[in-house]
Simulated assay, not measured.
Amino acid sequence: MSGTPIDSLQIGMHWFNERPGGLDRMFKALIDTLPDQGVSVRGMVAGSPGVFDASGGRVLAFAGAQEQLGARLWGSRVQSRALRAAKMPDVVASHFALYAAPTAGVFRRVPKVVHFHGPWAAESYPGGGGGWSRAARLALERFVYRGATRHIVLSRAFAQLLHETYGVREERIRVVPGCVDVARFNVRATRIKARERLGLPQDRPLLFCMRRLVSRMGLEDLIDAMAIVKPALPDVLLTIAGTGPLEEQLQARIVARGLERNVQLVGFVADDKVPLWYRAADLSVVPTVSLEGFGLTTIESLAAGTPVLVTPVGGLPEAVAPLSAELVLPSGGFKAIGEGIMEVLLGQRAVPDNAACRAYARKHFDQAVVAAQVAAVYREAIDAF
């Protein structure tokens, strides 16, 4: 811990235990770890009344996540005024533009830091459609981002996107990577024991991918890639964890490619079991095709001691290339993914071992390491305001 203690107000999206997602995981991680860096935290999200107890009394729910949009926006404004009345914060950190927008004017004389987790408008309409709704979301994002003193992004790729798409000045942008609780992912079980506990086969090469089942994640390419891998490694097994609107389409694709024995959709995996799934695998794969600012799944895999193969999209190469360039595929698409998987499993592509993966994750992406960097940006924003 360094510097004068400061009080922060954190505006999030959901509480992770109620609506798991990358943004929500990062938000919770900062709520848990910033106090050790001299940054006290108060927060607000859309969620149930149980958020208060689950967060140790640090985060309040301003409205239910399923309530009408108007009720959520009004709730955000009302709650922000109540928090201001209780104590004016030293800095306001927003993680989700939609819920930060209603607080406009409430903290007029307080420096603001935007945590840019991704382009909300583009992620909501990945196919390029959306019409007025997309334009409205983009305008709302620009409105929120324009009022910030500093902006925290997860990668240089997202720094460029924030500058070019939203007009944020480069000198206000700071790159701070995503973080994980490395100790939680440091599963003591051997790969054999992890497979035993999960009921997975011991005698097959095992791949793991944990993604939301939506188009930009590249899961179609990954399934098609397995049709390339199967002839060389007939016993290979890919397990895809996650839920989403593409589940039926992906299952149909698996059947159409004759991969029922080689690719399994395992659905939702409880958070406490995620480290075991990574540990059980020989290799994890992140086949994203667009809008990947960082990819927390890459670091989760490394923290569990399992190498991860990624497509050269967004911030993915930045996350893993310093450990080994061999973890980054030369291109996206099913052919490159399939060939890369085969090379790793056949020993033709050298990837870091268990110890190297864990050491790298611990040094660069542990929660305390990243929280210290975030705290430094908050103090910089206060000094510059």
Rank of each mutant, 00 (worst) to 15 (best):
A232C: 06
R84E: 13
F116N: 00
Q202E: 13
N17R: 15
D383C: 13
R109Q: 14
G333A: 03
A139N: 11
P205I: 04
R261I: 10
R184S: 10
L207G: 10
E220N: 10
L206M: 09
S76T: 02
I341P: 01
A280Y: 03
C179I: 09
R184W: 12
W15H: 05
G64Q: 04
Y125Q: 08
P307Q: 00
P126G: 01
A194W: 08
D366K: 05
S155H: 10
V266C: 00
Q37T: 12
G333I: 04
L198Q: 06
L309W: 07
W277F: 15
L345M: 12
S155Q: 09
A97Y: 00
A122R: 13
K335A: 15
A71S: 15
G105R: 05
A376G: 02
F52C: 06
T33Q: 12
D203S: 13
F385E: 08
G315C: 11
Q249M: 07
V91T: 00
R77E: 02
G314P: 01
L30W: 08
Q202S: 12
G178E: 04
A371D: 00
G21T: 11
T288Q: 06
S290F: 12
V59N: 07
M13L: 15
A225E: 01
S94P: 08
F52P: 04
I152F: 11
R109M: 12
E170F: 14
V39W: 05
L154S: 14
